[in-house]
Nucleic acid binder design. Structure first.
Length: 482
DNA sequence: ATGTAC
């Protein structure tokens, strides 16, 4: 498929989408020539141009090397809006899975101990962590959903799940203050009540990894990572609750856009000018859903560490599992950025499939990382590797403090199913020494490594562009899929 | 991503 938009190469890593048609700012795609071919074929570049036509947009529309087509906005995209110049909030720029994100723990368990108990740990994780479509665990029922929607991981810490000290190591301190639980509808609540503490399906996973390489010893030490060490990665979001919030926002967004006289080049870009009742209601609901996701990942990690302890025949309190960081990659946040030379301004940054990648010095960072830059956690695919990066100055200068969020899909789910069978994928993973537990064969095939771009290439682009540098590389030993 | 179409 030919891309209908003009694109100009800037250098080896940057491609400009110049202002054309209804665009008011340019787009910038970060990719090498190889990745760029996939991006153009997929049509993600056209979506970059569409986003650049929204009112009040500032700077540029950014696209990370893992970009692919999404609902309205591309996944792997960043866009910032000026509240004083007609700027909007658009749910499509955040994604259905509000606050989808990744949580990383360093585990004080030896590689040999994991290797010797791999099957038992995998089984215990599968038993202890509910996974798959709509699946929940009823033995822990958190009745006070309002408190979780308002307080996120903070509320869980009060319940003894996670600690006060952990909260600083979660973006937004584990809770967005702007949340209003009353803005989350009844159906969303019903879905959330049953699903908290469950992993979900699709690309969500829980992994035990080995740190196979350290690139930046100082940053690794700062983050509590060492070569040969073991980590646990949790990738999940706000489940059905966030999905419902997003879905229900559409009529109000279309209404608000019409009222404001915004001509949408794509209905999926439905949006509301910041400050309107529709925009504020959505932002308050989005924040509540984001808090649910922070709590969800905290509970998932808690249950997983319990399961690991059980498999190793010990108690949870004897497992050392410090939190490294918990990041979100589907959210809109108020942040101050230099929007033009010499002008700093508070703007609404939409990140959809993009991770915050703040450089040293930002006050939002936890004290212990402030002089280093933030950990940027980039999951790859279940058969190869994932990365921990560190935010760099280039991100502040070029991308509103943002980096990629993962490998990015190469094959659609349907295409993946035509190319392999569940057993062949499991066999290949087992041959690499990876213990896989999945709740459905479909999930395994759809998520096979070949369905994804090589995350090493994606990360390489981000690093060479000065957005975030590699700190450590993680290889999976145990994978639990939805 | 998602009780994958109320």
């Amino acid at each position: 498929m030919k891309d209908p938009f003009r694109i100009e190469p800037i250098d080896e890593l940057r491609w400009r989408v110049p202002i054309q048609q209804k665009m008011t700012v340019e787009g910038m795609i970060y990719a090498d020539a190889t990745l760029m071919k996939d991006i153009v074929r997929d049509g993600g570049a056209g979506q970059v141009a569409n986003v650049a036509s929204l009112p009040g947009i500032v700077g540029r529309v950014l696209a990370m090397p893992d970009i692919h087509r999404g609902y309205g906005f591309p996944i792997g995209g960043v866009a910032a809006f000026d509240p004083d110049n007609g700027g909007v909030v658009s749910p499509g720029g955040i994604g259905f899975d509000i606050n989808c994100g990744v949580r990383l723990h360093a585990l004080g368990i030896d590689y040999e101990q994991i290797e010797a108990n791999k099957g038992a740990i995998a089984d215990a994780l599968q038993r202890g962590v509910p996974a798959g479509m709509g699946v929940a665990r009823r033995d822990v029922r958190l009745d006070d959903l309002d408190a979780i929607l308002a307080g996120g991981a903070r509320t869980l810490a009060e319940l003894g799940i996670g600690t006060e000290e952990d909260l600083e190591l979660i973006e937004d301190g584990g809770a967005l203050e702007s949340a209003d639980p009353d803005r989350v509808g009844r159906r969303a609540r019903e879905r959330g009540e049953d699903q908290i503490g469950s992993l979900g399906s699709g690309n969500h996973f829980l992994e035990i990894d080995r740190i196979v390489e350290v690139y930046d010893r100082d940053a690794a030490e700062c983050f509590g990572l060492r070569e040969g060490g073991i980590t646990m990665l949790v990738h999940s979001g706000s489940r059905g609750l966030g999905h419902q919030v997003c879905e229900e926002s559409t009529p109000a967004m279309l209404r608000a856009a019409k009222k404001a006289g915004i001509e949408l080049v794509d209905r999926q870009l439905a949006c509301a000018p910041i400050g309107t009742a529709e925009a504020e209601a959505y932002l308050a609901a989005m924040a509540a859903a984001a808090n649910f996701a922070y709590a969800n990942r905290a509970l998932l990690a808690h249950r997983a560490i319990e399961a690991i302890a059980e498999a190793l025949g010990t108690r949870r309190k004897f497992i050392d599992a410090p939190l490294v960081y918990d990041v979100c990659h589907n959210i809109a946040k108020w942040e101050e950025h230099e929007i033009s030379p010499g002008t700093r301004k508070r703007v609404l940054v939409h990140r959809k499939g993009a991770t915050r990648s703040f450089a040293p010095g930002r006050e939002e960072l936890p004290e212990r990382y402030r002089a280093m830059g933030q950990p940027v956690i980039i999951p790859g695919d279940m058969g190869r590797y994932s990365y921990v990066l560190c935010g760099m100055q280039g991100a502040m200068l070029e991308t509103f403090g943002s980096a990629c969020h993962g490998a990015g899909r190469l094959l659609s789910r349907a295409e993946a199913k035509n190319r392999a069978t569940g057993s062949s994928v499991v066999k290949a993973l087992n041959a690499k020494g990876i213990a896989l537990r999945a709740s459905s064969v479909n999930a395994v095939v759809e998520e096979m490594p070949e369905a994804y771009k090589d995350v090493a290439e994606v990360v390489s682009v981000v690093e060479r562009a000065g957005i975030a540098r590699r700190v450590a590389k993680l290889e999976p030993m145990i994978v639990v899929k939805g």
